[in-house]
Amino acid sequence: MTRGAAGPTLVLVLAVGVLVAAGVTLLLERSLTRILLGIILLGNGVNLLILLGGRAGAAPFVGSSPQGEMSDALPQAMVLTAVVITFGLTAFLLAVAYRSWYTSGDDEVQDDLEDRQIVRLAESNEVSTADHGGEGPDDDPEQVDPEPARRRLRRDGET
């Protein structure tokens, strides 16, 4: 990392911007694999941003160079920690994506329960008025248990 008189190099600043922008774009996708890639890019962007916060310069060993020319070691230490954390979380998310593909044949993140209920009500043109305070449980046969997710791919050899 080189450094001009005024501040960090423009290249690094641009790199942060591009990484974060690409990461956010990918995060808006539905498939977990793309979200994962987005998180990796975003994480790297943030790590670079932290690195920009410290002063650049020579290796920070006592006696190796004048004190004013040394780089700031603290952001580098923080980035190391952050890299490890991002790595661990990425690995976990990868496992979740794989497991999700394994169980449902699909790694798409689906709408939540409420959304699906509202969509269903809208399709059948009903109003979601039912307050189940007064009537007995038999009056309302509708269940709110989550439905099984749809399966796109069926693997052979599994029933």
Partner: peptide
């Protein structure tokens, strides 16, 4: 399980 993964992935992200 399938349901936990769906809700869990939202939480994780």
């Amino acid at each position: 399980t399938e349901v936990r993964l769906r809700t869990g992935s939202t939480y994780v992200v």
